[in-house]
Write a protein that binds this DNA or RNA. Sequence first.
DNA 1: GTCTATACAGGGATAGAC
DNA 2: GTCTATCCCTGTATAGAC
Lengths: 238, 238
Amino acid sequence: MRAIRLATPPGTESWSGPYDDRMASEDDTGRARSYRKAADRREQVLAKAIELFAEHGVEASLRSIGDAIGVSHAALRYYFPSRDDLLIAVYQAHEAADHSEAEKQRSLAADPSIVDVMKSSALRNREIPGLVELYATLTTDALQQERHPATREFVRERFRRVRAELAELVRQGQRTGAVGADVDPDDAAALVVAASDGLQVQWLLDPEAVDVHRVLRLLEQLLPGRVSVDAAGREPSR
Amino acid sequence: MRAIRLATPPGTESWSGPYDDRMASEDDTGRARSYRKAADRREQVLAKAIELFAEHGVEASLRSIGDAIGVSHAALRYYFPSRDDLLIAVYQAHEAADHSEAEKQRSLAADPSIVDVMKSSALRNREIPGLVELYATLTTDALQQERHPATREFVRERFRRVRAELAELVRQGQRTGAVGADVDPDDAAALVVAASDGLQVQWLLDPEAVDVHRVLRLLEQLLPGRVSVDAAGREPSR
DNA sequence: GTCTATACAGGGATAGAC
DNA sequence: GTCTATCCCTGTATAGAC
């Protein structure tokens, strides 16, 4: 239906078997031992959500997910208190998978620049436009305080964390002289995140018109800053 | 209820009087002469929408707007085919007002740089977070093809137009030597738009953490590019 | 502890009143 | 030409089955 793909994080493969009622077994207290079942169900919901978001974009409804696994839409809210929480969980599942992917690549090229990080992230994202759409949606949902309080907190914290990590990379670059000393690390971090996010939105809307990777390369050429660039017109070697 | 303000564009002041049924008068064909009325009604709906979006953010419902002017929510769709069209109209009303404001400021400082344009826009936007929220919402709604086709077309065209205008500014800057010749104008335009949009989202979420104007100034310092910067560490004079 | 039934408010859409 | 009634499909919320 839609040319949108999401990465399937490890451990969330679709559960094709019939409903496995482990509630039948009981422990010595006589209470249903349903922890394992609950965890599995949650995984099943998450996996199906990833699948349907990949197929139909963020527009996939809770009812469609519930139908697909044979429960009512209300049942989903037992595992995910709101649709927002499910969206967040899907994004986090991707984030975890993407992080280990990034680790793998990072071991190849040590001492990455701030833009390197975003560039390789952007390259990976090209394969999963559905996820990028979901991320962008979370980001603006977060602006609507009363309708999306959970999303607001999640996105706000994520921005803080990412900015802090990137600012640290900038400081490292300044110590090695790769980045100009006149660049404020926090400002540079905010700038790179903003550029990266904004470019991906433009790209989703107009893939022919905007090349995220190329524009980020432009930013990379600029970012060394005037101080170090004055020395020479050299390429950043990383 | 909410510390959100939108600019009230000229000609859309709230219509406080009772319902003015000009349909009573007829022209020589005997048909109701309702053009004037329809135009007024549309203005009234638009004004009330601006008011309620300012008060409650984008979350204001069609029903609340309809209630506020004494018609059913379905009636609004006679003037605005969908809620998206109403959102777009509100944004366009702002855009028009903002454009004449920008013209006024531009006459003061001739030959503006590409970032100058975004900087002064960002300064004006600081006063109207509700509008910035609405713009950001339009932008990601546009990604959802089947749910928001009208928004998609509007936003896509707007991005194209803005990028083209800014790219032209970059070319001007390259002719005067203010911008390095090694900077691709289209890429620079996409970059500045992306940074500007992305920063405003981060600012809305965390006003203490991100200073849009200051980060755009950083980008401005970077943007002259290596070629012209190699010559000297001078400030852009504009 | 896990889930269904059900009700409600929101946006979208249509038929039809007048 | 302007608008209401009404229906469908969302996500949210609660009561209660088991």
